[in-house]
C-alpha cells in the first residue's frame, strides 16, 4: 500500500476533527458563560491541539510518500511459525 494513501486517510480524519472542533468551539463561545474559565479552557484546547499538529506536520514534511508499507506487517509476526 502506498504510504500516501494513509496520509489521505489521515487528512480526511483531520478535516473531520477540524469540523467537530469548530462546532464545539462555536457552541461553547456562543452559549457559554462569559469569563476567564471559558476563554482559558478554549485556549488550552487550541494550544495543545496546535502543538500536537505542529510536531506531526514537522515530521511529515520530511517523509518520502512514494514508499510502500504493509500496516499489518507487525501483527503478521504474531502468526509466523
Amino acid at each position: 500500500m502506498p504510504l500516501a494513501w494513509l496520509l489521505l486517510v489521515w487528512l480526511v480524519l483531520i478535516a473531520i476533527l477540524f469540523i467537530m472542533s469548530f462546532l464545539t468551539l462555536l457552541v461553547y463561545l456562543r452559549f457559554g458563560l462569559f469569563g476567564l474559565s471559558t476563554y482559558g479552557s478554549t485556549l488550552l484546547f487550541l494550544i495543545v491541539s496546535a502543538i500536537m499538529l505542529g510536531f506531526i506536520i514537522q515530521y511529515l514534511i520530511n517523509v518520502d510518500w512514494s514508499q510502500t508499507v504493509n500496516p499489518l506487517s507487525p501483527f503478521m509476526a504474531f502468526f509466523e511459525v
Binding site: L17, M20, T24, Y28, L33, T38, L53, I56
Partner: peptide, 29 residues
C-alpha cells in the same frame, strides 16, 4: 514507513481523545 504509520495513527488517536475530553468539559461547564 512504519514509523510514519505509527505516528499517523497515534496522533489521530490523541487528537480525537483530546477533543472528546474537551467536549465533555464543555458539557459540564
Amino acid at each position: 514507513a512504519m514509523m510514519t504509520v505509527v505516528l499517523l495513527g497515534g496522533s489521530i488517536f490523541f487528537l480525537y481523545a483530546w477533543l472528546f475530553l474537551f467536549q465533555n468539559f464543555v458539557d459540564w461547564a
